[in-house]
Simulated assay, not measured.
Amino acid sequence: MDENHLAEQTTVKDSTISFMVNGERVTAALSPALRLVDILRDKLMLTGTKLSCGIGRCGACSVLMNGRLVNSCLVLAYQIEGASLTTIEGLGKGRDGLHPIQEAFLEEGGFQCGYCTSGMVMAVKSLLDETPQPSQEQVREALSGNICRCTGYGGILRAVDRAACRARM
């Protein structure tokens, strides 16, 4: 068996996959094994979602899938068939300006380089959707899958408190 024949046999054919991203229907021919983070960044040009570790440990690529927080580096294209996805770009959609969580991060200095920020904001969104008045322990647990190497977490924790206070108003 020659090398070209082997390559032809192992090529995964594209499948038509349909899903929602930030309220808009997307139908595309994609390799079923393509990672969601690559679809978002390279195919849909939604570059707010960052790729850092690529193995689900840092949370930089976190998005909401059917309302649940996921690491988009661990989700494959075939898994998003029929799913509803929300990225950082979709949070403030339909509003004048930023989402209240994004505003709180700005006001409290919840970021420095910004690389982890979109994943942190999505984790906070997931937390506050499930628990509008979280305890400090719940906040720390919700953010445990997100790593920030710059801020020392003080500003991030203050931002979560501020966003939770606004949600109560």
Rank of each mutant, 00 (worst) to 15 (best):
L34P: 00
L34I: 11
V37Q: 01
V37A: 15
V37I: 15
D38H: 14
D38K: 12
R41A: 10
R41L: 12
R41Q: 11
D42V: 06
L44P: 04
L44T: 05
T47H: 01
G48K: 06
S52F: 09
C53N: 09
G54P: 02
R57Q: 15
R57P: 00
R57N: 13
C58A: 12
G59A: 08
G59H: 05
S62Q: 02
M65L: 13
N66S: 14
L69M: 08
V70L: 04
V70S: 03
V70R: 02
N71V: 01
N71M: 03
S72V: 01
S72C: 03
L74V: 03
L76K: 12
A77S: 14
A77W: 07
I80S: 00
I80R: 01
I80W: 03
I80E: 00
G82S: 04
G82C: 04
G82I: 09
A83R: 03
S84H: 14
T86W: 03
T87P: 04
G92P: 03
G92S: 05
G94Q: 11
G97C: 13
L98S: 08
L98V: 10
H99A: 05
P100S: 10
P100H: 04
P100A: 04
I101D: 00
Q102P: 09
Q102M: 13
A104Q: 02
A104F: 08
L106E: 09
L106M: 15
E108D: 11
E108S: 15
G110N: 06
G110T: 08
F111Q: 05
C113R: 02
G114E: 08
G114N: 06
C116P: 02
T117R: 04
M120S: 06
M120I: 15
M120C: 04
V121G: 03
V121W: 00
V121D: 02
A123I: 05
K125E: 14
S135V: 12
Q138I: 07
